[in-house]
Design a protein around this nucleic acid. Structure first.
Lengths: 202, 202, 202, 202
DNA sequence: AATGAATGAGGCTTCATTCAT
DNA sequence: GATGAATGAAGCCTCATTCAT
C-alpha cells in the first residue's frame, strides 16, 4: 500500500522531469542522465520504471491520448447533429484546444516530434489517424447531408490537420495568440467553410 | 586544376550519401560513421569538408533554398498580375511543386525536420519565413484589390503553409498522389478560395 | 558510507597509476589510456574523477604543495632566529629534502615539468613563488641583521633555486648521492655562504 | 645548382617557422600541421626535409650547439690562463651570453625542453655535458693551482649550471634583466667566488 | 525500492603519413 | 621538387546499462 504510492510518486517525478527537459532541450538530445538529474533520482532508479527515453515520451503521450480521444469522440456526435454545423465545429475545436492547453507541454512535444524520426512517427501515428479520421467522418457526413461541397475528404482532412497543427504550434510553442485563440479558431472555420474569395459577380 | 574537381566530387559524394542516409534513418540518428560508410570515404575525409552532421544538412538545405526562392519570387509577380487570380495561384503552386519534386529528398527532409529540435528550427527558419512572406504578400494585395475577403493574412498564411506541408509530406514521403498531384493542388486552391460550405439558401 | 571509501580508493588508484606512468614515459606523452590501463579501471571511470591528464598532474602537485609549504613556513622562522645562521639553513634544507624524498616521484615530476610547456608552468608557479619568497625573505633579513652581504636578493634566490633544483634532480631522478645527500647540502650551503675562492692574500 | 639553393631555402623556411611556433605554443604541442601552416608550404613538402617535429627541434639545436661549443672551447683556455681568474670567468660568461642572445629563441627552447621528456633529454644531453665538463675543468684547474677551495667539482658544476640556467631562463623567456644582464653576471661570479656571508670576526 | 560507482561500447576528432598529380 | 587530398590509426569523450550495497 505504502509502496504502491511511493512507486507511483517516483514515476510521476520522472515524467514531470521529462516534460521540462524535453521542453528545454528537445526530445532528440535528451539523455537519461538529464532526466535523472532533473528528477533528483539515482541513475539506477530510472531503469526500475522505464527502459529508455522513448518509453518516457510514450508514457507522456499516452496521458494526452486519452484526454484527446475522449474530447473528440464525445463532441463529435454532438457537433454533427447540431442544427448549425458551424457552431458545432467551433465547439469541437474549442473543446480540443482546452485539452491541448491543459497538456500544453506534451502537445507541443507531440507536434514537434510527430514528423521527425521514423521510429517516433510510429508512436504518434495514433494522433495523426485520430485527427484524420475525425475530420473525414465529419466531412463525409456533411457531404452526405448536402451541407458541404463534394471535395476529397482525405485532402480536406490534410488541409485542416496541417492548418490546425501550424496554428497550434505557433500558439503553444511560440506563445502566439495568447488570449484570442478562440477568435482565431472561428476565423479558421470561416475560411475553411466559405473560402477567402469575394463573391464579385453576385 | 584536377584537384579542384576532385574536391568538388568528394563533397558531392558526402552530400549524396547524406541525402540517402537521412531519408533512410532520419536526420537525428544519423552519425558521421553512417555518412562515411555510405560515401565510401575515410573517416578523416569527412572533416575536410564538414564539421558535423548538421553542417551537411545545412549544405543540402542551402541547395534547395536557392531554387525555391527563385521559383517563388519570379512567379509571384506574374501570379499577382494575372487577370485570373486563381489561375495565377495555380501556376505558382505548380512551379513550386516542380522544384519540390526536383529536390524531393531534401524537401522531404526539410518538411520533417523543420519543426523538430530547437537547434534545427533555426536552420529552416528561412523556409518558414519565405513561405509566410510570400503568402502574406499575395493575400494582402488580394485584399487591397478587393478580390479577397479581409481575413488575417498571418493566420491565412499559417493555414496554407500547414495544409501545403501536410499534403506535400504525404506526396513526397508516403508516395501519395503520385501522378494527380496537380489536380489536388487545384482542389486545394478551390477550397481555400471558395470554402467547402454549400451555398444553400441562395 | 562504503561508497565514499570506494570513491576515495579509486581516485587514489588513478593518482598512483599516474605517478608511475609519468615517471616512466614523462608527462607530455602520457595518455588517458595509459592511466586507465595502469590503474586497471575502465576508460569511463577516469572521467568520473578527472577531466584530463593535466588535472591529474595538478592533483598530484597539490598533495606535495601542502607538505612543502608547511615544512618551509614552519622551519623558516626557526632558521632565521637561530644563533648560528648556517646551522639553521642546514636544518631548513634537510627538512625540505625529507619532504622531497617522501614525495620523490611527484617532486621529480615537479622539477622536470616546471619549466616546460607554458600551460604547465602556470600550474607549478606556486612552487617557484614559494621558493623565491622563502629565499628572498631569509636573505633580506640576513642582510638587515648584517650577517649577509648586500647582494640582489632576487638574483641570489635564482641561484639557490637553480642550484637546488639541479642537485635535487640528479638526486631524485638519476639516483645520485643516494646516501650522502645531507653532506652535499652542507657543502652547498658552505659554497653559497663563503664562496669558492681561497683568501690568498689575507 | 639552382635546385640546391631552393632546397636550402625551403629547409630554412621550415626551421624559421618552427622557431616561431615552438616559442608560441611550446614544443610538446606543436604539430606538423602547425609548421606547415606557418611556413606556407604543403604538407607533403615537410616530409622531404624532416621525418617529424623532433627532427626539426634537433636541427635547430644543432645550429646553436656549434656556436656554443666554439665559444666555450675558445674562451676556456684564455680564461684559465688569465692572471685574474675572475675577469677571465666574466669574459667567458659574457661571451656565452652573447651566443645565447644571438640564438635566444632556440636557447630558450633548449632550456625549457632539456629537462622534460626522456626522449628529448637525450637530444639535449650534449648541452648538459658540455656545460658540466667546462665548469668542472675550470674548477679542477683552479683547485690545483691553489686559487680555489677544494670543493666537489661536480657539485659545484651543478650549482653553477642550475644558477646559470635559472637566470638565463628568466632573462630570455620572461624578459628579465633586459639590459643589465652583464652586471648580474658579475654579481653571480662574485657570489660563487666569495659567498654571501660577511666576514664578521675578522 | 533506491542508490550511484563502475563499466565499455560507440561515436567523435586529430593528425602523421601516403601518393597521385 | 612541390603539392594537398585522402587516409585510418590512435586518442578522446559520452552515455546507456549493470550491479553491489
Amino acid at each position: 500500500m505504502r509502496q504502491e504510492k511511493r512507486k507511483e510518486l517516483t514515476r510521476k517525478k520522472i515524467l514531470e522531469a521529462a516534460k521540462q527537459v524535453f521542453l528545454q532541450k528537445g526530445y532528440a538530445t535528451t539523455r537519461i542522465a538529464d532526466l535523472v538529474k532533473k528528477s533528483r533520482l539515482a541513475r539506477g532508479t530510472f531503469y526500475l520504471y522505464f527502459q529508455d527515453v522513448e518509453q518516457v515520451l510514450n508514457a507522456l503521450l499516452q496521458e494526452v491520448f486519452i484526454d484527446i480521444q475522449r474530447s473528440v469522440t464525445e463532441l463529435q456526435v454532438e457537433a454533427l447533429d447540431h442544427e448549425n454545423f458551424k457552431i458545432g465545429l467551433s465547439e469541437l475545436a474549442k473543446s480540443l484546444l482546452a485539452v491541448f492547453q491543459k497538456h500544453s507541454a506534451v502537445v507541443g512535444l507531440l507536434l514537434t516530434t510527430m514528423n521527425s524520426e521514423p521510429s517516433i512517427r510510429v508512436q504518434t501515428a495514433w494522433f495523426q489517424e485520430l485527427t484524420q479520421a475525425t475530420i473525414r467522418v465529419m466531412l463525409e457526413r456533411g457531404i452526405q447531408s448536402g451541407r458541404l461541397k463534394n471535395h476529397d475528404p482525405e485532402l480536406m482532412a490534410f488541409l485542416v490537420m496541417g492548418g490546425l497543427r501550424e496554428v497550434v504550434t505557433h500558439w503553444l510553442i511560440d506563445g502566439r495568440y495568447s488570449k484570442d485563440i478562440a477568435v482565431k479558431v472561428d476565423e479558421m472555420i470561416a475560411i475553411y467553410m466559405n473560402g477567402v474569395e469575394r463573391e464579385t459577380q453576385k
